[in-house]
Every structure is written in C-alpha cells, then in structure tokens.
Nucleic acid binder design. Structure first.
Length: 800
DNA sequence: GCAAGGTC
C-alpha cells in the first residue's frame, strides 16, 4: 500500500502547500493490478488462524496490519492472529519462531504510519513551495524539481558543509625537521617528535641544534606485537562503501548488482544492518559451496582442512543475516560488474572466517641537540585474513637493527616545507558513513537519497566518486542556514525518529504525536515562506531571472508578442508580457513549426523531437499542451504511468496528436491513420519524418515505417471503405517509384491496399501478430480514446 | 512534478 493526498490536492496550482499539512492521507494498493489484497482475502477464506511471517522490523509490523486488514481476520470471531519473530530462515530458527508465536505489535505499525504521514506532508509542502517559487523566477536552475526532504536535504547538507570548509579554508605554512642517517646499509629519514612547527625561524634554530650535535643517540627501542582484526560479517552499508571506494560503483548501481546476485541465487539477501552471523549459520556448508571456485578454491580447502575461525561477534540488528555467498560462480556467468561485487562478497566472507593478521611493530627513539626523533619498522608475522583481502595487508617496513645507547652520525638535516591543506570533497563512501552515523536513511534508502541529490542536480559525482555540490545545491543549503538551519541539519530526522519511537514503544498516542510534529513543521513552513527572500537573495546572485533567460522562439496567442524558450530543465516558454510560463515536453529539441498557429488560441505551433533515430516528433500548441481544452485529455494521457506520458514530461499535456479538433490539419482527427495494433492508441503520421516517413502511436512506442524515399506522404479526408483507416496520399520519387510507367502519385489504405501494405514495415511492437486492429478511432471527435471497442474482423495487421 | 520506506 502507499500513502498519498487525495486527488483534489494533486494540482500544484490549485493547492496552497500550507493546506497539505492538514489534508487527509489516503492509502491505496501500490500495484492494484496484482490484486494482492483480493488474493490474500481469498486465501484466508476458511482459515482459523493467521500467522504473520513478515520481516521483523517496524515496516514489517506495519505490513502485518495491512495483511490483517485484507484478510479481515480481526473482525471475525474465533479467528486468531499470530506473529512469528525470526531473523534467519534456518530450519532451527523457523521452528523456534513457530513454537514461540507472539501477537503483532500495533504500536510499531502505527509508528510507521506516523512517519509516512509526517514525511509526506513536510516533504511535499516544502518541495512544491520552493519549486514553484524559484522555477517561476529563474530560468537557468537546471532542475525540474527543487525537492526538500528530511533525509535528502541533510544529505545534501553534508556535501555543502564540506564545500564551505574547503572554500573558507586558510592554508598555513609549516616546517618539518628531518635528520638522515646511514646505518647498516640503509638510509633512513627520521621523523621529528614535534611533528611540525608553524614558525620557520624556530625550526631553523632546532635544525642548528641538531647540526651542531652531529650525532643521534638511540634512547629507546620498543617492539610490540600488533593485531589487525578480521572483519565482521558484511552488511549493506559496508558493501556500499567498498563498492564506491574500491570498485567504483555508485550506491545505486551497487544495490542493483547486489539485488541481481541475490535474485539469481549467488548471494544472500543484500539489505541488512547486521554484521553478526546467526548462531545457526552453516559456515561449513557455505565454504563447501565455494570449494570448487577456480579463484579461491585452494584458500577455501585450506580453511576447511586447517579449521576455520569463528567470526568476530559483530552486531545483530535482528533483521537479516550478513551478506554471504550462496553458491559458486565464475566471471563468465556473471559479467564484469556483478563478478566484481560477488568477488568482494566472497573475499569478505572468507575474511571473516580467517585468522587475524599479526605483525610486529618496532619503534626506535633518538635524541639529538635536545630534540627527539623516531623511526618505525613493521614486520608481518602472519598474514591471516589479509591474504584473501590483500588490499588490507600490512606493509613491511624494514629498518636496520639498533642498540640502546648507540650513537649514530647524522648525514644531513633537512627542513621540509609544507602547508596545511583543506579537506577534499566528500567521497560517497564518507557520505554513507555520515548518513549512517546520523541515522539518515536506511540500508535500502541511503542509495536512493544520494541518487536523488544527484538527479536533482544539487551535487555532481566527480573523479574518485567525490560529491561536489552545484551552485543550486549550495544556494539551497546556505538559504536554509540563514532562514532556519534546522531544516538542513540531521537532527530533523532524529527528531522525527525520536517522536515516532514514542509511538512504537506505546509511550505516546499516535495521532497526538503526528499532530504535534505536523504543527511544529507548519510553523517552520510559514516562517520559511515568510523569509524566503533571504534565500532568494542567494539565488539572485547565482541565477538569471526568467525575463533574461532563454531565446526568442514563438508568438504568444494572447498578446501576440514573442515568447522565450528556456531550454534548461524544466524546458518551458516564458511570455514576458503576460508573465506566463508554458511548460513544453521535456528531453528533446523544440523548434518553430512553420509559423503555423493553433486555431483554438492563436499560439504558434512548435514541433518537439525526441532524441535518437526512432524518436518521435510531434507538433504541439504551448497553450493547449498546458491547458488541454477538451475534457478528459489530461486523464487520458497524463497518468504518468505509461512510458509515452513520462517522455512527454510535465503532466503529459495535450500534443496535437491527441487533439480531437475536427478540422485543424494537425489534430488526431486529421493525422490519425488507424488503430494501434499494440494498445488503445491511434497511429498518426509523423509530420517531419521525411524521407523516412513513418507512423507512430500516440499512446505507446509502436512505430511503423512507411515507403522510404517518398517525396511526400500526407493524410487525406478519405476513409477506407473496408476498414475505416485514413487514406494516405503518397508522392513517390521518380527514381524509385514502384508504380508503372514512372508514375509517382498514389493514394490508398496502408492496410487494405496491396501495394502500400507491401511497403510498410513494423518497427517497434512485439505482440503484434496476435492482436487485431479495431478500426480507426477518434472519428468526428466523439467516442474516441480508450472507450472505442469496435471490432472489425476484416482488419488485421497479420501480414505486416 | 513532490517524501521515505519497502520491494524481485
């Protein structure tokens, strides 16, 4: 199920964002077509007991109650509801859970509902307000949505904070004293006890002391055995950090790869917080599965024969076991990227079962001219787990033997000059650590938040997977900082978590908590709206006003003056006289369409072309596209669910190919040819596709190539008497006309006319042969669209 | 067009 505002709150222009805080929230089935609720209800018929085996976290508890709701179990007498508590699906754990059933925890479920409501209201209200405010004012913001969220905004905050540290950093010079010695054939550079000084004169003074002394005395030698511990079990956050820092995979990609490895049975469930293996974990079974691996087979065999080490304890978050390999694989089976990730999961798993790494560390202390110096040597005694995770290996540092009290000549004393340096931009891996530490997001959502701030163009991933904030990201965070710094601090998330924690523990009433939190945010919101000019001052310095943006493109139908096209996202037209914005289809190019105008509103028509060789182009009227003049068009096309609607950008709008205008030469009525064989749409003639003339569907991706090389192909007002398709007029090229005696002009139905039919070719569309056409739709502007179910057995695309 | 949390 998912929560959203009711339909009447969906229109950005008609809803004041402030109203959203007090709006009702409705829950609907996320995938209504899957009929999950109906299915559960049917399955539960005739059952006396319901045992809920969902994930054992708050979200899982919340789903328990959705299931109870679907089955209607709570209201039926004598029927009992149980909850199984388990964190591993080993037989032993399942039996234990079955024998210790408990009741589902309503408070935990309510806490999730509370969080959903708070996040939705706060996020949507702020997002709508700041998006409308800024994109209505500036032309080069380069983001369709200027979103706000209690997780994504503090995430951006971390990146901008680092940026500000870098830009405000003042470097300072420092000096370091380094004596050099030759000892038993080694030249050694010794480190200074004072590390560094910020005064060159004082450093020079010390240099003279040491030079004058000329010798160093060994004042102490200590040797210690050190241990570098093997890792604990692998959880999601650690996998993501390694994937970003060592493999170069962003968190989003890493999760996708991990998910595929999981669904294909190569690794265990990849979303877990736990680093502790369950007590029932079958180490030997997992090792056995890897023994035939060509790369680590030998290592695994050795672990099995020498006896593997029991892993370090780690933390058990009670959700899922750590991420481990399930079965053996090779690079050929997985492909490069999945293999890299799988390889890491295996290496990490074997690492957890390997011995610790042991090494000795020798520290030699020296004295000269009153100053102390030292050098360090390292010697690995047992590689342990670092032999399977070689990038963590301890480096050997060889130093010669010294004896306490020994005096050694100094060969030279140098001063190295350096200067303090600002930190670098945050790496993804560092950001993930910060998010985890501050409780921002979860294992599953951390990648999403990082991806969001990239997609909205608030930050950019640069070399070394470092996150560099953009002017937009910086202006936003600096804006929050001067209006209400809470808005971009991680505490905003902890506050919400802490409040719903009270609900989960039954210490506070859910609706009272929600009411309280929402009221707090309403106050923050109205203060933010009141002070938005403080943030705007920063935007003014970075971005250009709409009136100065874009280039002159087409005439406005109301004032008949030229409007400007602003091509940065979101692409739109701006009429400076009317001060109106008209959004255009997104992600494509926009040109003037022969200075033709729309008969309904006088706006000049534009032509939009999607990228790629098979990209559709279609004419649209800027006014109609934003304000469909015919009822139901926006619902028909603007659901946002279909690929076609998504490609058309904002709301789907109404391009001319959907317009039921009866006489305009660009409408669906004039341009439509026949029913789409794939969907409920209509195939229309692409007006600027010459010389590769084609038809495309106004609803789906279906594409039909028409006779190539024709001079001109146009629709006529005639209909095919057999199938009601529009008769096409084709003007063939003299050189390659298929007509007798070099004739070039021809008219016919592409379905029923043998010659034309033989010249068309289906480009996109798979289930093509099974479907039958249903006659041309949209006739006379009535009964069009998806309600037309006219069947005509004569008409078939079978021979395409 | 919007949040964060799940999920194959």
């Amino acid at each position: 199920m998912f929560s959203d505002f009711p339909g009447r709150y969906q229109d950005w222009n008609a809803t004041n964002p402030m109203e959203l805080f007090e709006a009702p929230i409705i829950k609907t089935e996320s995938t209504p077509k899957a009929h999950i609720c109906r299915h559960l209800s049917q399955e539960s018929r005739g059952c006396g007991h319901l045992v809920l085996w969902l994930d054992c976290d708050r979200e899982g508890e919340n789903i328990c109650f959705e299931v109870i709701e679907c089955t209607g179990f709570h209201s039926k007498d004598g029927k009992k509801v149980y909850r199984a508590r388990f964190s591993s699906v080993a037989e032993k754990d399942i039996l234990k859970a079955m024998n210790n059933l408990v009741e589902p925890n309503k408070n935990e479920a309510l806490a999730v509902d509370a969080r959903q409501e708070i996040d939705l209201k706060v996020g949507v209200a702020f997002t709508r307000f700041q998006t409308s405010y800024f994109s209505g004012k500036y032309g080069n913001l380069d983001s369709r949505v200027i979103s706000y969220g209690p997780c994504q905004t503090p995430t951006l905050g971390f990146c901008v904070q680092r940026h500000l540290q870098i830009t405000t950093f003042k470097p300072e010079k420092f000096w370091v004293l380094h004596p050099y010695i030759m000892h038993k054939g080694y030249e050694l550079k010794l480190d200074w006890g004072r590390r560094r000084l910020f005064d060159s004169d004082v450093t020079l003074m010390f240099q003279n002391f040491v030079k004058d002394a000329g010798v160093l005395k060994v004042t102490g030698i200590s040797e210690k055995q050190e241990t570098k511990g093997r890792p604990t079990g692998l959880n999601t956050v650690n996998l993501l950090k390694v994937a970003s820092s060592a493999l170069g995979f962003g968190p989003q990609l890493a999760m996708q790869l991990a998910e595929r490895l999981y669904t294909q049975g190569f690794i265990s469930y990849p979303r877990t917080e736990s680093t502790a293996y369950p007590s029932s974990f079958d180490y030997k079974g997992t090792l056995d599965a890897l023994v035939r691996n060509p790369v680590w087979g030998d290592y695994v065999r050795q672990l099995l024969s020498d006896g593997y080490h029991k892993p370090r304890s780690g933390t058990d978050a009670g959700d899922h076991p750590p991420i481990t390999p399930i079965c053996s694989a090779t690079e050929d089976m997985l492909g490069h990227d999945m293999w890299k990730l799988y390889q890491y999961v295996c290496q990490h798993f074997l690492g957890t079962l390997s011995p610790d790494c042991k090494y000795s560390r020798i520290n030699v202390e020296f004295e000269s001219g009153g100053e102390s110096f030292h050098c360090v040597g390292q010697h690995v005694l047992a590689k342990g787990f670092t032999s399977i995770m070689p990038w963590l290996a301890v480096t050997e540092i060889n130093i010669p033997q010294f004896a306490e009290g020994q005096k050694i000549d100094i060969s030279r004393v140098e001063i190295d000059e350096g200067s303090t340096r600002p930190p670098d931009y945050l790496t993804e891996s560092e950001l993930i650590s910060l998010m985890e530490k501050n409780g921002i997001g979860t294992d599953a959502s951390i990648p999403v938040h990082i991806n969001n701030i990239c997609e909205r163009n608030f930050v950019q991933v640069q070399a070394g997977r470092r996150l560099v904030p953009t002017a937009l990201g910086i202006s936003l965070i600096r804006g929050y900082q001067c209006i209400d710094p809470d808005l971009c601090l991680p505490d905003i998330r902890s506050f919400i978590e802490q409040q719903i924690g009270l609900v989960a523990k039954g210490q506070a009433d859910s609706s009272l908590v929600v009411q309280h939190v929402i009221q707090q945010f309403m106050r923050k919101f109205s203060y933010f709206v009141e002070k938005i000019e403080n943030m705007d001052a920063l935007f003014e310095a970075e971005f250009s006003p709409l009136s100065e943006s874009g280039r002159v493109l087409s005439k406005c139908g109301s004032c008949l003056r030229y409007m400007k096209h602003i091509s940065s996202q979101p692409s739109r037209l701006y009429c400076g006289t009317c001060e109106e914005i008209y959004y255009t289809p997104q992600k494509g190019t926009i040109k003037l369409y022969k200075e033709l105008t729309c008969p309904l509103d006088n706006f000049e028509l534009l032509i939009f072309s999607m990228a790629g060789p098979d990209g559709k182009s279609f004419p649209f009227c800027p006014y109609c596209y934003n304000n469909p003049p015919f009822e139901g068009i926006d619902q028909l096309f603007g659901s946002g669910k279909s690929a076609a609607a998504a490609n058309l950008g904002k709301g789907g709008g109404m391009p001319c190919f959907l317009c039921p205008h009866p006489t305009c030469q660009h409408s669906m009525i004039s341009r439509g040819v026949c029913a789409c064989p794939e969907c409920e749409g209509t195939l229309v003639l692409d007006p600027i596709s010459a010389p590769k003339w084609r038809l495309y569907c106004n609803m789906c991706n279906c594409l039909v190539a028409l006779p190539e090389g024709a001079h001109k192909i146009s629709t006529t007002r005639e209909r095919c008497p057999e199938c009601d398709s529009t008769i096409l007029e084709v003007d063939f090229n003299k050189k390659n006309t298929p007509l007798k005696d070099g004739a070039t002009s021809y008219a016919g139905c592409i379905l029923c006319d043998e010659l034309l039919h033989s010249l068309v070719e289906m480009k996109h569309g798979k289930s093509f042969f099974r479907r039958r056409g249903r006659g041309r739709r949209g006739r006379g502007g009535r009964g069009g669209g998806r309600n037309a179910k006219k069947q005509d057995p004569k008409m078939s695309f079978r021979d395409f």
